[in-house]
Amino acid sequence: MTVPVYIVLIYAFIVWIDPYGLLKQGKKRDFYMCSALCLISFSLAFSLAMDWEIPSPSPPIVWLVKQLF
C-alpha cells in the first residue's frame, strides 16, 4: 500500500515545481495545458499503483483507422 503514497508525493512535488513556475512567468495557456496533462498522467499512475484495470484504447483506434481507409 506504500506505492500509492509514493506516487502522490512524487506528483505533488512535480506539480509544485513545474506548473507553478509557468504561472509565475505569466504563461497561463502553458500552465493550463501542463496541469491537464499532469492530471491525466497522475490518474493513470495512481490507477496502475492501485492495480485497477484500465481499459485498452486499441479497439476505438483500430475502428477509427479502418474508417479512414
Score class of each variant (00 low, 15 high):
1 M>I: 08
1 M>Q: 02
2 T>K: 04
4 P>S: 12
5 V>E: 06
6 Y>E: 10
7 I>C: 11
7 I>Y: 00
7 I>K: 00
7 I>R: 03
8 V>Y: 07
9 L>G: 14
10 I>A: 15
10 I>W: 09
10 I>D: 09
11 Y>F: 15
13 F>R: 03
14 I>S: 01
17 I>M: 07
17 I>H: 04
18 D>H: 13
18 D>L: 15
18 D>Y: 13
18 D>V: 12
19 P>Y: 01
19 P>S: 04
20 Y>Q: 10
21 G>A: 04
21 G>K: 04
22 L>Q: 07
22 L>N: 02
22 L>T: 03
24 K>D: 05
24 K>S: 07
26 G>T: 13
26 G>P: 01
27 K>M: 13
27 K>N: 15
27 K>C: 10
27 K>Q: 15
29 R>G: 03
30 D>M: 11
30 D>I: 10
30 D>L: 15
31 F>N: 05
32 Y>L: 13
32 Y>P: 01
32 Y>G: 01
33 M>N: 03
34 C>L: 09
34 C>V: 04
37 L>W: 15
37 L>R: 14
37 L>T: 15
37 L>Y: 15
38 C>I: 14
39 L>C: 14
40 I>Y: 13
40 I>P: 03
41 S>P: 07
42 F>P: 03
42 F>D: 07
42 F>H: 08
43 S>D: 02
43 S>T: 14
43 S>R: 00
44 L>F: 13
46 F>I: 14
46 F>V: 13
47 S>T: 07
47 S>K: 02
47 S>N: 06
49 A>C: 07
49 A>M: 04
49 A>S: 15
49 A>V: 05
50 M>G: 00
52 W>Y: 14
52 W>T: 07
53 E>C: 03
54 I>Q: 08
54 I>E: 06
54 I>D: 11
55 P>M: 06
55 P>T: 10
55 P>S: 09
57 P>A: 12
58 S>L: 11
59 P>T: 06
59 P>M: 09
60 P>V: 01
60 P>K: 03
61 I>M: 07
62 V>H: 00
63 W>C: 01
63 W>G: 01
63 W>E: 10
63 W>M: 06
64 L>R: 04
64 L>S: 10
65 V>R: 02
65 V>E: 01
66 K>H: 08
66 K>S: 09
66 K>F: 04
67 Q>P: 00
68 L>H: 02
69 F>R: 08
